[in-house]
Amino acid sequence: DSDPNPMRNAFSKYASYLNDLVLFLSVLVNEKRERVVKASRDVTMNSKKVIFQVHRISKNNKEEVLEKAEKDLAAVVDQYISRLVKELQGTDFWKLRRAYSPGVQEYVEAATLCNFCKTGALLNLDQINASLRPLSDPSVEPLQINVLDYLLGLADLTGELMRLAIGRISDGELEFAQKICSFVREIHRELMLIAPKMDDASDMKTKMDVMLQSVMKIENACFSVHVRGSEYIPFLGSEDTNFSLLGVPEIE
């Protein structure tokens, strides 16, 4: 097929132009996309491990567990987020957002969970982004988590907080559970106002429904501890002072 017609020539010129552009797309971007997806998957898996570690918390091992969790979280940043940052460096963050968003969300979930357990407060987006800044080569634009991924991560955080609260109640840590309850309520109220404004509003809507379920699960658990505890309040404190409500340690 070596006919020397101009159109075909134009097109093969065009095709060689594609070696600069389309193959840039298909090789550089497609393969970059693949690599970003893989890096994101690793971030997800290792963030999940951090979350799992936090759930090992119990009344007596709090410092120990959180210390380990924070170390693991730092490792996620050093090893996996940094790889993600390296892959993304110099490319359009928004273009590849779908590829890395799941990992970033899960990292937000892990980081905010750790921080809440340690300080009782919400880790801000600015704080997270500040902590990521050192990872990037100063010459290029650093990876900054966007509001959307941060909020999607927060939405999932409430599920983890629910599991945490149920566990804490079993462990007798009522105050901690109540603190979680207020915190989750607050996040729910704030997100409720934000949800319809998000780019991916319909995803967020389902997350909001799940979140309300989580809030109510915590509230119901607090309720049943409360009514149980209220029943004998007059007698408590007199007889049996060190009988903490629904705590395990008294056995044996």
Binding site: S170, R228, F243
Partner: peptide, 21 residues
């Protein structure tokens, strides 16, 4: 396994009910 936590909690509640009385 996640469900086991609820079993644990319920048994604790019963234990509490019995103990408190």
């Amino acid at each position: 396994f996640d469900g086991m936590k609820y079993d644990l909690r319920r048994v604790e509640e019963v234990h509490y009910d019995v103990k408190i009385r």
